[in-house]
Amino acid sequence: METAAELAALPDEDLMLLVANGLVEKPASELFRRHNRALFNFIAWQCQGDTAQAEDIAQRTWEKLMTRCADYQPQAAFRSFLFQIARNQWLDLRRSPAESRRAELDETRPETPTDDLTPEAELALRQNLAQVHQALLALPENQREVVVLRFFGEMSLEEIAHTVGEGFETVKSRLRYAFARLRRELEAPS
């Protein structure tokens, strides 16, 4: 369709403005087509592979996006806005405040590696990606979250900070902790 093709050329923020001004169906469908896959993947990682819960959270996220679109500020990146909604939905459904506090308290201060993985270690891990997958799932939620957003959502640190509602340094710190934990888990003798 001509309209769908034209809409595919428009930026996310303009499409979101159209949704906020009553032009809902086609622009929102275009946004859905662009971002639902990454969104669902992010939620699924956060749900540790529970796709049913991820689907529920994703549906709530899109519904909230279209019904609460007046909250959207054109200056903000649309993806940050969308993932923020999804994250809040996930937090509401998934975690209790006690769990959230425990996740923060469980953070250890591992020593940050100063060098890269050896080529041999990389080759061995490529042959056993399930170990990488398990190591990622084993990360604390707040660390896994920033890793997923950084490497699967392709978000910058600023976008991640905006999405999770934390400061830039906090996001960077969580990434550093995740990096150290992953290196430790993956370099440990199996």
């Binding site: 940050t112 993985l117 990606l129 399930a130 997958h133 990622l136 890793v147 490497f151 640190l157 992953l182």
Partner: peptide, 23 residues
């Protein structure tokens, strides 16, 4: 420096993470 390269997605760990669709 290793962490900086990790953040930029240039180290080996980052490449492994990006190859995770093997799930």
């Amino acid at each position: 420096e290793a962490f900086e390269r990790f953040l930029q997605g240039e180290d080996r760990l980052a490449r492994l993470l990006c190859a995770l669709p093997a799930y």
